Computed example of a mutant assay.
Amino acid sequence: MTDKPADIHETIKRLKSAYPASRIALNFKSPLELLAAVILSAQTTDVAINSLTPALFDRYKSAQDYAAADAQELEGLIKRSGFYHAKAKSLMGMGKILVERFNGQVPSTMADLTEIPGVGRKTANIVLWNAFGKIEGIAVDTHVARLSKRLGFTQEDDPVKIEKDLMKLVPHGDWGRFSHWLQDHGRAVCTARKPNCAGCLLNDICPSAFKV
């Protein structure tokens, strides 16, 4: 055990080896489907979102479809995602912005994506990397935030500040995949309530090992 932050390069090396096929857990076939799925995934598990998106994507195939959606019908399809009133509003707003400003297409820059209702830096980073293979930052969700603090990479609670700390440490070429590695490790080992430190491949370099 150590009181020093985990070595970032050793951390990445081990996580990359442990989760070689690491990828986003949400199912999608287009940038629009991914953007909608990520908006819906706020405060909800990816498993839950994957269970409802097939019907959603079958009904709404374009930005125009979301822009012209009947709120009650849309809410019915996404009700299981939680906070469905707000999320339906975001999806409809997303469709309108895409139609009005981006010719119905999902834009591929951070500046443009963050102008869309319901889209912050986390969502934009996820879409940029997973739909376009572009890197402008590091997506910080609850898993990434939790593990980054436990590993000593940040002392911040705000996702934007955590992202800034990580961008200083993580090699640029790993920014996109870094979130997936931490997410996989956070689900499998370093869980929120009872992390399995004894079975963790980082326990000899993690400053929080056996202390959480």
Rank of each mutant, 00 (worst) to 15 (best):
F210W: 12
I97P: 00
N103M: 06
D65Y: 02
L151S: 04
V47M: 13
L34S: 10
C197A: 02
S179Q: 14
A145P: 12
M94S: 11
V47P: 01
A21N: 12
K61N: 08
F102C: 07
G82Q: 04
W181H: 09
Q43T: 13
R146C: 12
V106T: 01
F102G: 01
G118D: 03
V140W: 13
L113H: 12
A42V: 02
F28Q: 06
M92S: 01
P195R: 01
R101M: 06
I8H: 03
P195I: 07
D65E: 00
K61Y: 12
P107C: 06
I126K: 09
G76W: 01
A124Q: 02
N203T: 11
A18D: 06
V212M: 14
T154Y: 01
L35K: 02
S51N: 15
P207E: 02
G176C: 00
F57D: 04
K194S: 14
D165G: 11
L91C: 09
S51T: 13
T154M: 00
S208N: 10
T44E: 04
A192Q: 03
E156C: 08
K149Q: 15
A145I: 05
M1Y: 07
V127M: 05
A48C: 13
R193Y: 06
A6F: 07
D174R: 09
F102P: 07
T53E: 08
A42F: 03
L113G: 07
I126A: 10
R121S: 15
L74I: 10
T191Y: 09
T2R: 14
H172S: 09
R59Y: 15
A25G: 11
W181G: 15
A18P: 09
S81R: 02
F132L: 02
S22I: 00
L151Q: 05
A145C: 08
K79I: 11
